[in-house]
Each structure stands twice: as C-alpha cells, then as structure tokens.
Design a binder for these strands. Sequence first.
DNA 1: TTTTTCATTGTCAGCGCTGACATAATTAGA
DNA 2: TCTAATTATGTCAGCGCTGACAATGAAAAA
Lengths: 342, 342
Amino acid sequence: MNPIGPAVKRPATLDDVAAIAGVSAKTVSRVVNRDVNVSAATRERIEAAIRETGYRVNQAARSLAASRSFLIGAFMPHLSSFYFAEIFRGAAKACRQYGYHLVLEEFDHGADSVVDRYEQGLRGAHCDALILTPPVCDDEKLLDALDRDGLPYVRIAPGKQLGRSVAVGADERRAVEQLVRHLWDAGRRRFAIIAGPADHAAAMVRERAFCDALGALGGDPAGVALTRIELNESIAEAGRIATLDLLRGSNPLPDAIFAFNDEVAIGAMAAIRELGRSVPEDIAVAGFDDSYIAQLVWPPLTTIHQPIADLAFQAVRLVADPEGFSTGNILLPTRLVVRGTT
Amino acid sequence: MNPIGPAVKRPATLDDVAAIAGVSAKTVSRVVNRDVNVSAATRERIEAAIRETGYRVNQAARSLAASRSFLIGAFMPHLSSFYFAEIFRGAAKACRQYGYHLVLEEFDHGADSVVDRYEQGLRGAHCDALILTPPVCDDEKLLDALDRDGLPYVRIAPGKQLGRSVAVGADERRAVEQLVRHLWDAGRRRFAIIAGPADHAAAMVRERAFCDALGALGGDPAGVALTRIELNESIAEAGRIATLDLLRGSNPLPDAIFAFNDEVAIGAMAAIRELGRSVPEDIAVAGFDDSYIAQLVWPPLTTIHQPIADLAFQAVRLVADPEGFSTGNILLPTRLVVRGTT
DNA sequence: TTTTTCATTGTCAGCGCTGACATAATTAGA
DNA sequence: TCTAATTATGTCAGCGCTGACAATGAAAAA
C-alpha cells in the first residue's frame, strides 16, 4: 500500500478508450452518460474498450466540466445512532441508484452551529443538493444560507415552514393518535412526555398531536407533564436523567410516559426501575422510531414505527431523479407497534 | 429552493479574488493552501478579498489539477449501528481537521460482494485513500484490487495479514484476558461464545484469545461451545436466535456467554429470558464495544470498551496527515467494564 | 431525383485550479 | 560595494471532461 501521492498507475481516460474503440472521446462520453443517439455497433465497441481499460469516469473532471459535483450532502446529528444509520442506509441506496455519492458532515447537536458547519464544511464540498433531517431541517438560518447560495435541498420531517421546500415526511400525527387512544383504552390517565431538544420541530409537532388527541378523548391536555431532555454524551442517559427529575417532582406519578425516541424511552425505563417502580404496571412507556433495540429490552418497548431509511431514500430521489422535483411532497405511513411496556 | 441545475449564483473563483486583491490567481491559491512564502501584507489583502467574495475552493477543479480528490472513502458494514456511528464520528472529525471529506459506501454484509461494491461504487469516487473496518479490512480480494489500483488504505482492527498495510487496532487480547479471569474468578466454568460472522477476522482473534486465556487458567479451551450468528435484518435478533439454538442443544447449560458485540449480547439475554433462565444468576453474559445500550439494558451489560471513534480518527490521520505514514501501526487501549450481567 | 429531416459522430473551448518554472524583489554574505 | 542566496510573486499549460455547435451520412419526404 502506498502513501497518498501520485497515483501508481495512471487510470484510463476517455481518450484512451476512444483510441482503442476508434472513435472520438465525445462519443465515449456519450456512452458513459447513456446518451441515446449512439448506434448499437459503436456502443458495443466502446463498451468493450471500457472493459478492456477498466475505465472509470473521473468525477473531478466531469464535475468541473459539467459544473455539477454528483455529490449529495447531509448533516448527521448525533441524536440516535439508529436513526443516523437508517438515514444513511436509505440515502446511500438512492445515491447508488442515481449515480451520486454521499458526503456526510458531522454535526454535534448543541456544540456546533449548523450554519458554521455548513460554511466551513459542506459548502466547500460543492454538493449538488443537501438532504436535511431534524433538527437542522428547521434551522431557519441554515435554510437562508442555502437559499442564498442557490443550493437545492430536501427536508426530511420538517416541523416548521412546511411550504418552504420540497419535503419528505412520515404521518407521525396519525400514529400518535393511535398511541393516545391505546393508552387511554388501557385506563391510563396521567400522562407525561419526555421531550426531545427544543429545536427538533418534528418532535414538537408530535407533542402537540399527543395533547390534541388526548383532548379529543376527553382528557386534559393541560395536565400533561412535559420535560425536555438536556443533551449530553448519551441520549438514553439524557432520557434517564430527565425522567428521574420528572418523577421526583410528580405527585401522583404519571401512569404513562411518551418519550422522544426509543433511546430516551429506554433511559426512562431505567429511571423508573431505579425508583423502584415497574413497567408497565406502574407506568407505561412508549418510544418513537421502532429501532431494533425496542424489541430487545425487557419488557419490549411499545413504539411508533416510521420508515426512516425510506424517508432518506425518497429525499435523495427527489433531488437526484430528473423527474423527482415535479413529484412534490411525500408522506410515508407510520404505525403503532404495541409491545410489552404499555 | 431550486432543482438541480445551473447554479443560481456563480460562486467566486480564484480569479475573482485575485482581481480584487490585485495579485495573481496563483498567489491567492498559495494563501488558500497555506503556502509559507507569501508576505504578511499580501496575505492579509487576499484574506480580506476572500471574505468579501465568500470564495470557497472548487474541489473539482482542485482535484483535477492536483490529481487528488481530497476524499477518503469507507465501507459501512451493517453489523452494528453503534459501531458504524462511532467510526463515522471519528473519521469525520479527522477529515474536518485535515481538509478531507468522507465518502461512504453502503455495504450490506452477506448480500454484497465487497469487491463489486468497490468496483461499482467507491472506485468511481476516486478517493485518495480508504479506511477499512472489519470485516472488509480482511477481504483479500478487496486488498488485491486496491493494491492493483495503487489506492492507499488503512485498516482498522485487521485480523489477518497484519503486515500488509498500516493498521490501527485496539488491544483486544488484553481485555479478553481480563474478562476470562473475571469470569473464572466468579466461579464460571462452562463457557460459550456467540461468535460473529466467519469473515470478521478480528472477532476470531478474540475467540482465540478467549480460549487461550482460559487454557492459561487451567480451564478447558476445547470445552467452549461456539455458535456463529446467521446475519439477518437485525444483528441482535441474530444473536437471540443463535443463543436459543445453542442453549437448546446444551446439557448442562453454559454458565457464561461471551458475545460478538453488545447487540448480540442483548439478543443473548433475550434468549436466556425466553428460556426462563436469569442473567447473571444462571448465565453470565459479556458483550464487546461498550455501546451506550450496554448501560441501559437490565441488568447492565458487562462488556469490553474499545475506542472506536478514536480508531477511525487515527486511521484517517494516517493517510491525511503528511507525516502520518511514517508513524507506523497504532495500538489503542481497551478495558473491561464490569456491570451487572457477570 | 432533389430537398429536408434526423440520427450519429466529431471539433474545440474552457470549467477552476495547481505544478513546474521563470522572474522580480529583498536580504545576506563577501 | 557587489554578488549570491533567499523570498515573493507571476506565467502558463493542462488535468479529463462536457456543452455548444458543426459536420456527416442515411433515410424520409417532396
């Protein structure tokens, strides 16, 4: 293996392929880019030459000439490694399908300013488009900066300024209504929400949906106790601490907790256990995301499933597929998954 | 927001900055690239012009001219979203620090051939270097392909052909020895290993280390029951199924299980619970990685901590830092974290 | 047949930058 | 003082590709 430096073997170029196939470089370019107007015979000869040389398009040259980078950027907030991994999985799949590459920018929620991260990081990558997840998808300063630079973006699950861009979302409201009804029917009456960070607008929409649904059933939305987690190293730990605080200050204790996500819910379960209470007998717990750990903790966690990877896939498709932008917003289904904690 | 297409505003170029600062484009380039031979006065004027224009280097042009892409590639196997997220976090931090960008290639362990993924995906990105995690870091065909293309790479925790490349690893053997001693001292005598995929060489080294350490204590390495997980949608689920199989075929039951990673360990705990046994009374369980969920399950999981993010950081540093390659291999510390399951 | 159309292929400038090299300005040394 | 070494800046080709446009040839229409 070699240190970074001049490539050991000069990769084949369009000209190399063209010389072998006996055509012009431009015609090879046409084949590579799937241009229609190339005769079958020529195409075959060129494809053979491409195989022979192992030719791969030089993205830098292509980008420079076409003034496109074929890069799609994304911020990766550290709210949940499951959410993060799923987003990546869906986005990567779509990128592969549409001939793009993913550029990821780390974003340490709380410590960094997204706009700074954009200015100092992603902006320099000259992406063709960005996909934005919560909470950065609702950061107005960031959106302003992107609009200023004329950089297209798709938002995943935005909670504010819904008309501002094309967006891909999940029907969170519906599943939250199902959850509230499920808890209500089980006789739960004293609700608490362990909420996510205040700038996570989608989560706040869920909180509102929770209260609305409760009101519709004759419950008291104003009586719902709400604590917001303080972000720290581990979000589950943050959930545990927030729940501890909430429970210590509650009399009577709530009998149902709706957590920001599964990790927070698991932290909440740890807190309940610490205070000598049991789930679901004393307190029911519900999470959000249906991450794989929801099935593995004990008792298995009731949660709301949303198609995270598909959300990201669709987001990339919107920008990468030439026909994508005409599609308009996309709303994917969610569903309540009842397990042992409720 | 705009569909992908011609940029709305033409970004400033070196020439634009040069014109404002009254110097040549080359001198601006020198400032941008932190070349030393630029007078302070000139540098200041140019920096002001850069601020004024909002100039950002065009990576495509820079890449083309310098024949470097400033991209570092990585495969992202779906073995553990925690591991994945940590690797990413460390690598992204280092990339930021050294002026590189990360390109991630999805790799669906089991379904895909890594070499295909490389040929069809990452190779086209023309990365300057790759960082390889298990299990792909031990894929000889991939390494052959990389060597053939003269593409530098750093391996993280390789388990085979250790001399073949620069590598960053964790001292897994030492922590495994501590674990075995810990289990032995607690009176455990019937051991089982829920092992990872067969191509994960680093994990196999751990298995061997486990048996060696057992032998050193006077135990019977040959008596260690070993099952390998079958990869499926969820690795924890794979761990649960493998453990179920193992326990159903065991008489007497093992009294200690060492799992491939924390997620598998959690699956194992679920299986033990399903069979009506308890952790740690009947069976002790230990994982690997010290992921955040290890602290949240009940009982909290005994596991081996390894600095995953730092591993990736160092790997990127080796290729990105001009002085990196002279550093040679790097071995980072691990430690046994004893919690409630043992 | 001649003209028009259209599918196919070619030509060439130039995207924005950097490496190699040349030159000018300054400083150190003799 | 003058020359040599050093520092600061400039010139320019060309990285590999694509967009705009031109040219060619063959089929369709007149």
